[in-house]
């Protein structure tokens, strides 16, 4: 049985990734597999699930976009300040095939970086697509260069890389080259489009679904998805594209902390 109390450690390093997006490195041996997440406790504020974006023998990192009270505070933190760690939790990505495509929308690329690093180590031919609204929101531009990871950047406004969506690039790749498996993390509507494109092209894919979580280990029910009731924190967050498309609410709605439905795409 895992210890369900957070272990508090001082922040080792803060990395400025992009406009309003920071990474925080923590001196804690998490031992996460690619795609798994940690619950990060900001003392006195809240506990939230976050994908693991950096990991070595003695530390790991998370990449956070300043959107709510918790993430805004995290983005203001400095080395030496304390954060609590629980985990790792959730299912991991399955690295398969010789040629893989990884698609990170917004800060979604964070949850794919460990997988990309493993692919490079195992000499899998990996192509990363990182997309954002505009150049100032693109993360890991330096990091992928240093890793030698083949990366295509897209921006909605064309301010950097290709103008358009990550899914446009995916379609082009699937038409021109052979891909054995696709991995995607990002806004849910993007993920759904990826799952559909992969289904049409008969290419297996895995995506990571984000849902509101209170506990992270399958007890609170907050992340149970309709209609089957699978808990995203335990039975996910990684799902195959096929599994994801069977989830009725996938790409349609999610639930907030009070279990009320909220539609994707701004409605309600």
């Amino acid at each position: 049985m895992k210890n369900e109390m957070p272990v508090t450690v001082p922040i080792k390093k803060v990395i400025d990734e992009a406009n309003g997006i920071k990474s925080v490195i923590l001196p804690y041996r998490l031992n996460a597999k690619p795609g798994q997440f940690a619950m990060i406790w900001l003392p006195g504020v809240d506990l939230k699930p976050v994908g693991v974006s950096y990991q070595d023998e003695s530390s790991f990192g998370i990449t956070v976009s300043a959107v709510g009270a918790w993430s805004k505070k995290i983005c203001e933190m400095k080395a030496g300040e304390l954060l609590g760690v629980m985990g790792p939790y959730g299912k991991a990505f399955k690295l398969e095939g010789k040629n893989i495509v990884l698609i990170g929308g917004g800060y979604g690329a964070a949850s794919l970086m460990m997988l990309a690093e493993r692919a490079l180590k195992e000499e899998t031919n990996a192509t990363m697509i990182i997309g954002a609204r505009s150049s100032d929101c693109l993360i890991y531009r330096e990091r992928v260069k240093q890793l030698g990871l083949k990366t295509i950047f897209t921006t909605d406004d064309g301010s950097f890389g290709e103008k358009g969506f990550t899914t446009d690039v995916l379609q082009k790749i699937l038409k021109e080259e052979k891909a054995d498996k696709v991995f995607a993390v990002g806004p849910e509507l993007m993920e759904k489009r990826v799952a559909e494109i992969c289904l049409e092209n008969n290419v297996p894919c895995e995506i990571s679904i984000e849902r509101y979580m209170k506990c992270g280990f399958g007890v609170c029910g907050a992340c149970s998805v309709d209609d089957e009731g699978k808990r995203v924190c335990v039975e996910g967050t990684v799902f195959s594209g096929e599994e994801a498309l069977k989830i009725r609410e996938f790409g349609k709605y999610h639930r907030d902390g009070s279990a009320l439905k909220k539609e994707f795409g701004g409605k309600k």
Binding site: G218, V219, C220, G221, A222, S224, V225, D226, D227, E228, G229, K230, R231, R255, A259
Partner: peptide, 15 residues
């Protein structure tokens, strides 16, 4: 207070 927040989540416990 455990898991059961929706019809889907309780269905999963029954399953």
């Amino acid at each position: 207070g455990i898991v059961g927040i929706s019809k889907a989540s309780v269905s999963y416990a029954v399953k």
